[in-house]
C-alpha cells in the first residue's frame, strides 16, 4: 500500500501523484496495484465531495490527474478495470453535443467505484444498443440539454425495448431542461438532478 500515493491523489497534488506513480513503477509494483491506490485516493475525493469539502472543480481536477497518472501506466479512466461495483454506461443523446454535465457524472461515478463506459456526445441509438450488449450495465445514463432532443431519448428507449434490452436495466436521464414530465414522456426510470443522485440511485439499485 502506498499511503503517499493515496493521499496525494486525495489532496489533488498532481506533481506528487505523478512522481509516486513513476517511483512505484520503477520498483516493479504491478500496474493494477498502482491503479487501486489511485482509486482509493479517488474514493476519498468522492467522500470529500459528498461532505461538501470538494466541489466540481476538484472532481474535474481529480479526473484529470487520475487520467494523467493512468497514461503513465498505459491506460485511461476506462482502463481502470477493477471497479468495486457494476458497469455504468453513459452518453449525451444524438443531436446534442453538450459534454460538461455528462463528464461530471462519469467522473463522479468512476470515483465512486463504478466501471464507467463513456460513449461521448451525439450518441446514436445503435451505439447504446451495442454498449449494452457488450458491457451488460445495470444502469445507463442519458444526458440531454436540448428540448429538441427529447424525442431522440424517447426513440432510443423504445428501441432498447424492442431489442429486449430494456427490462434488466434502469435508465437515468439528466440535464438542464429535463424534469419529471420529460422522464414520463421519454419512458425513462428516473431523473437525476445532479451527479450525486446518480451515484445514490445506482448504488441502491445495484444493492451496494
Amino acid at each position: 500500500m502506498s499511503k503517499k500515493l493515496v493521499e496525494a491523489m486525495a489532496d489533488l497534488e498532481e506533481d506528487a501523484v505523478l512522481a509516486e506513480v513513476k517511483a512505484l513503477k520503477a520498483q516493479n509494483v504491478p500496474a493494477l496495484d498502482i491503479i487501486a491506490y489511485l482509486q482509493e485516493g479517488m474514493s476519498i475525493v468522492g467522500k470529500r465531495f459528498e461532505e461538501k469539502e470538494y466541489f466540481l472543480s476538484e472532481l474535474i481536477m481529480s479526473a484529470e490527474i487520475f487520467n494523467e497518472a493512468s497514461q503513465l501506466l498505459g491506460g485511461g479512466m476506462g482502463g481502470a478495470g477493477s471497479s468495486k461495483y457494476g458497469t455504468f454506461v453513459m452518453g449525451t443523446i444524438y443531436d446534442d453535443i453538450h459534454d460538461i454535465g455528462k463528464n461530471i457524472v462519469t467522473t463522479v461515478m468512476s470515483s465512486n467505484g463504478f466501471n464507467v463506459i463513456d460513449l461521448g456526445v451525439d450518441v446514436p441509438t445503435a451505439k447504446y444498443v451495442e454498449a449494452i450488449k457488450q458491457y451488460k450495465p445495470k444502469v445507463i445514463g442519458i444526458s440531454c440539454l436540448l428540448t429538441t432532443a427529447f424525442d431522440n431519448i424517447k426513440e432510443c428507449i423504445q428501441t432498447l425495448e424492442k431489442e429486449g434490452l430494456r427490462k434488466d436495466i434502469k435508465i437515468l436521464i439528466g440535464g438542464g431542461p429535463v424534469d419529471e414530465a420529460t422522464c414520463k414522456y421519454v419512458g425513462a426510470d428516473h431523473v437525476c438532478k445532479n451527479a450525486q443522485e446518480t451515484v445514490e440511485y445506482s448504488k441502491k439499485y445495484m444493492g451496494v
Binding site: T147, F150, G176, P177, V178, D179, A181, T182, Y185
Partner: peptide
Amino acid sequence: VQAGKLTLG
C-alpha cells in the same frame, strides 16, 4: 418558465 414545461406542458 422552464424550457421543458414550454415544450411538454
